[in-house]
Simulated scan of single mutants.
Amino acid sequence: MTIDWYNFTPWSALVGGALIGLSASLFVLMNGRIAGISGLLGSLLERGEGFGEKALFVLGILLAPLVWQLFSRLPDIQIDSGWLTLTVAGLLVGIGSRYGAGCTSGHGVCGLSRLSPRSLAATLTFMAAGFATVFVLRHLLGG
C-alpha cells in the first residue's frame, strides 16, 4: 500500500470532522433531536414542528461546498457508474435507511457518539453491506 502524499489532507479532514461533530452536537442541544439527515429530509416533506431550523440545517449542508470553494479548490468528481446504477443504488440506500430507522449520519455519527447499541448494530450492518457490495461488484463481477 502506498500513500498519495500530494492528496493526503489530514487537516481539512480534521476540521471537517470537527465541524460535523459541532453541528450535530448543537442540533441535539438546541432541538433535542439527533441530526440524522434522512430523518431531517423526511420531516421537511411533512412541514411539521421545527421546519425552519431543519431547513436551515439542510441548506447549510448544501451551501458548505460553495463556502469551501472560496478558500480552496474542490476535488474533481469522478463517477464510474451509469445513471441507472446510481439511481438503483440511491433507491436502495433510501429504502435501507427507512427500514433501518436511520442513516449513516443518524446512526454512525450521532448514535455512536451516544454509545447506542442499536446504532452500533446498524453501523456495523451497513458498513458490512457496503464492503460486501464493493467486493462482489469489483472482484467477483469485475465491474
Results as ranks from 00 to 15, higher is better:
Met1Ser: 09
Thr2Ala: 07
Asp4Lys: 07
Trp5Tyr: 04
Trp5Thr: 07
Phe8Leu: 15
Trp11Gly: 12
Val15Gly: 02
Val15Glu: 00
Gly16Lys: 10
Gly17Ala: 09
Gly17Phe: 09
Gly17His: 13
Ile20His: 00
Gly21Asp: 04
Leu22Arg: 03
Ser23Cys: 11
Ala24Val: 08
Ser25Leu: 10
Leu26Ile: 08
Val28Cys: 07
Arg33Tyr: 13
Gly36Leu: 00
Gly36Ile: 01
Ser38Leu: 13
Leu40Phe: 10
Ser43Asp: 10
Arg47Ser: 06
Phe51Ser: 09
Glu53Ala: 14
Ala55Arg: 10
Ala55His: 14
Leu56Ile: 13
Leu59Asn: 14
Leu62Phe: 13
Leu62Met: 10
Leu63Tyr: 15
Leu66Ala: 08
Leu66Tyr: 12
Trp68Thr: 11
Arg73Gln: 15
Asp76Lys: 11
Gln78Thr: 07
Ile79Gly: 01
Ile79Gln: 02
Asp80Leu: 14
Gly82Tyr: 12
Gly82Phe: 07
Leu84Val: 07
Leu84Ser: 06
Thr87His: 08
Val88Cys: 15
Val88Asn: 03
Gly90Glu: 00
Gly90Gln: 03
Leu91Lys: 02
Arg98Phe: 13
Gly100Asp: 01
Gly100Lys: 00
Gly100Leu: 04
Ala101Tyr: 07
Cys103Ala: 11
Thr104Lys: 05
His107Asp: 03
Ser116Thr: 04
Pro117Cys: 06
Pro117Met: 09
Leu120Asp: 00
Ala121Asp: 05
Phe126His: 01
Met127Asn: 10
Ala128Met: 07
Gly130Ile: 04
Thr133Val: 05
Arg138Gln: 15
His139Thr: 13
Leu141Trp: 09
Gly142Asn: 11
